[in-house]
């Protein structure tokens, strides 16, 4: 079943795959994000309680969901790398890490910005915000561990172990924080617990969620290509690639020179 994936364990094939996927991801991200945000911000109806300020969910909710999703994806990549000894799996894991961290940060920032009109304070120890904050710490741990090793192959393996430890912990953290929150502020109703959401509000939300996912995919492919080229600098195929890019640049420069000369 997994056989079709095996060729992508080779860095060169993974690079080619990134090149193929990348334009589709960018187009998908552009289309979905513009439809989702325009629809959500301009056309979706107002919330009867929160007015226009609820519209931040079109950024907050996708980034929060995908910050968790990216961490799970990292853990899956780490597991694949561990079981089948794929270097590219570790590379894609570390390609995703900063993107996931940025998503977490966006979720925290928009959550805080939403909290200001809702609670009158930038930061309230709300259960979900606290979970996101701890998730950000987990991301930073993985990135810091990866950075601490000079041998990046070893770094990938070590960061992979930490990503797996983290992913086992995420549900425990989530559950414990939720529980802690109900103990300490039982009366406050979480602003995120919407009993139901009108379909006119939900559709743009789903579309922007898809757009965020495409965007993460696009940035991951760029970062993975970058990582592969950096790590495989000494390989003939990378050098051939660089030569090709250089000669193209030179011929472009030459043609502009000719044009200017005319």
């Amino acid at each position: 079943m997994w056989k079709w994936l095996h060729p992508y364990a080779k860095t060169e094939r993974a690079y080619q795959l990134c090149l193929t996927l990348q334009p589709w991801f960018w187009v998908g991200a552009l289309v979905c994000l513009s439809i989702g945000t325009v629809w959500g911000l301009a056309f979706a109806p107002q919330d009867y309680q929160q007015g226009d300020s609820f519209r931040i969910i079109y950024i907050h909710v996708p980034s929060a969901i995908l910050s968790m999703g990216t961490y799970v994806a990292m853990a899956i990549a780490a597991l694949v790398g561990m079981v089948w000894q794929w270097r590219t799996a570790y590379m894609s894991m570390i390609a995703m890490a900063p993107i996931g961290a940025v998503m977490t940060f966006i979720a925290l920032f928009t959550g805080a910005a939403w909290g200001k009109p809702m609670w009158g304070a930038w930061w309230v120890w709300d259960a979900r915000l606290t979970s996101e904050l701890i998730l950000l710490f987990l991301y930073m741990g993985v990135i810091a561990l990866y950075g601490a090793f000079e041998d990046k192959q070893q770094a990938g393996k070590a960061a992979g172990v930490m990503a797996l430890v983290g992913v086992v912990n995420i549900p425990i953290i989530h559950y414990s924080v939720e529980w802690w929150n109900t103990l300490h502020q039982g009366a406050t109703i979480s602003k995120f617990d919407n009993p139901s959401i009108a379909p006119e509000m939900l559709w743009p939300l789903l579309i922007s969620l898809l757009g965020f996912a495409f965007f993460i995919g696009a940035v991951t492919t760029v970062r993975l290509r970058n990582e592969i080229v950096l790590r495989e600098m000494h390989r003939p195929w990378v050098q051939a690639l660089a030569m090709k890019a250089m000669s193209k640049q030179q011929s472009d420069a030459a043609s502009t020179f000719v044009k200017e000369g005319n």
């Binding site: 710490f137 810091a144 561990l145 172990v161 912990n169 953290i173």
Partner: peptide, 28 residues
């Protein structure tokens, strides 16, 4: 985490960064 950082020259602070978030549920 010690097993992972033992080969690094300066593992001390890194160890804390890796472990504190993981210990939060226990604290709670």
């Amino acid at each position: 985490a010690v097993g992972l950082t033992v080969g690094l020259q300066k593992g001390g602070v890194l160890l804390a960064l890796l472990l504190i978030p993981v210990f939060i549920p226990l604290l709670i």
